[in-house]
Computed example of a mutant assay.
Amino acid sequence: MSTITTQDGTQIYYKDWGAGQPVVFSHGWPLSSDSWEAQMLFLASHGYRCIAHDRRGHGRSSQPWHGNEMDTFADDLAELIETLALKDIVLIGFSMGGGEVARYIGRHGTKRLDRAALISAVPPLMLKTAANPGGLPMEKFDEIRQGAIADRSQLYQDIASGPFFGANRPGAKVSQGMIDSFWLQGMQAGHKNTFDCIKAFSETDFTEDLKKFDVPTLIIHGDDDQIVPIGAAALNAAKLVKNATLKIYPGAPHGLANTHKDQLNADLLEFIRF
């Protein structure tokens, strides 16, 4: 397997497909780089080098007890980018991975980047606060934590067969394979790692990170996202990122990298090329 070892000894797995300008992907919770397969196959087939890592604690990477927060995740990403000597990068983050991308830019800047994309991403802040009234109440995240402790496997089944892909909407067509893939990726991840990440993706405020974006940025979000509501996420992020292009997918759920993969692939290719 292709891995790097970070400064604290954590092994980070990554896949590296194709050749050309590098496109680096950051996945969501509780998934792995496998969740980007459709985009990686498509873009690698169109002349790009597609790289995706398993975040620490996820997929085939180590499961350290500590470091399951956004600063460390961003630093791991920076180590991967520097170890592979990547430059002129298109950096793409989905859901929690969008937070990782934002924090990477906040901590490490854009000197190695050509452009960035945030897909169904959590920034600027998921949690409802006085300053963020459109966010979700803490009770929602406490329910996820309780579900993770009680029966993590069933929690992932319920998320995948319900709101993540919009399977709970009338007329939805979500395959059993799609649900099983989500569950499998989740169960590959560490229990402690994924538990800690609930706090990381819900309570981290990326407002100042978004203000540091100075490369062309594409923001894509479904207006029926039941996991990361568009009002507190993409609509606010688009106001904070300079020269952002916002694309809203009508009726799309959170997991649009699967449910709307052809549309997303085409939009990413157009964005990267031009």
Score class of each variant (00 low, 15 high):
residue 172 A to C: 11
residue 186 G to P: 00
residue 189 A to D: 00
residue 201 F to W: 11
residue 203 E to W: 09
residue 172 A to L: 10
residue 114 D to H: 15
residue 116 A to W: 04
residue 63 Q to D: 07
residue 261 K to F: 13
residue 93 G to L: 08
residue 38 A to M: 11
residue 231 G to N: 04
residue 258 N to G: 13
residue 192 K to I: 14
residue 267 D to T: 08
residue 53 H to F: 13
residue 236 N to A: 14
residue 170 P to S: 14
residue 255 G to V: 02
residue 137 P to E: 12
residue 163 P to D: 05
residue 164 F to Y: 07
residue 94 F to G: 09
residue 118 L to P: 01
residue 112 R to H: 14
residue 190 G to H: 03
residue 193 N to K: 01
residue 56 R to Y: 14
residue 133 P to V: 00
residue 121 A to L: 10
residue 234 A to M: 07
residue 52 A to H: 04
residue 177 G to L: 05
residue 187 M to A: 01
residue 43 L to R: 04
residue 258 N to C: 12
residue 231 G to T: 01
residue 104 Y to T: 07
residue 43 L to C: 11
residue 138 M to K: 12
residue 67 G to I: 12
residue 64 P to F: 00
residue 243 N to T: 08
residue 253 P to R: 00
residue 198 I to R: 02
residue 144 I to W: 09
residue 59 G to I: 01
residue 244 A to K: 04
residue 146 Q to Y: 10
residue 243 N to G: 08
residue 214 D to N: 15
residue 256 L to S: 06
residue 24 V to H: 05
residue 274 F to L: 11
residue 159 I to M: 02
residue 177 G to Q: 08
residue 117 A to Y: 05
residue 111 K to V: 15
residue 157 Q to K: 11
residue 181 S to Q: 10
residue 215 V to P: 03
residue 71 D to L: 14
residue 162 G to N: 03
residue 150 A to K: 12
residue 41 L to Y: 06
residue 221 H to F: 07
residue 62 S to V: 02
residue 30 P to H: 01
residue 214 D to T: 11
residue 121 A to Y: 07
residue 7 Q to I: 13
residue 59 G to R: 01
residue 87 K to L: 02
residue 208 E to A: 15
residue 185 Q to A: 09
residue 258 N to A: 15
residue 145 R to K: 14
residue 184 L to W: 06
residue 256 L to I: 05
residue 177 G to W: 03
residue 22 P to Y: 01
residue 130 A to T: 15
residue 229 P to Y: 03
residue 185 Q to N: 11
residue 69 E to D: 13
residue 114 D to V: 10
residue 142 D to Y: 09
residue 44 A to H: 06
residue 259 T to M: 10
residue 230 I to S: 00
residue 215 V to C: 12
residue 169 R to C: 05
residue 79 E to Q: 15
residue 265 N to L: 04
residue 8 D to W: 08
residue 122 V to L: 08
residue 266 A to S: 15
residue 76 D to C: 09
residue 32 S to H: 02
residue 268 L to W: 05
residue 53 H to W: 15
residue 218 L to K: 05
residue 175 S to R: 04
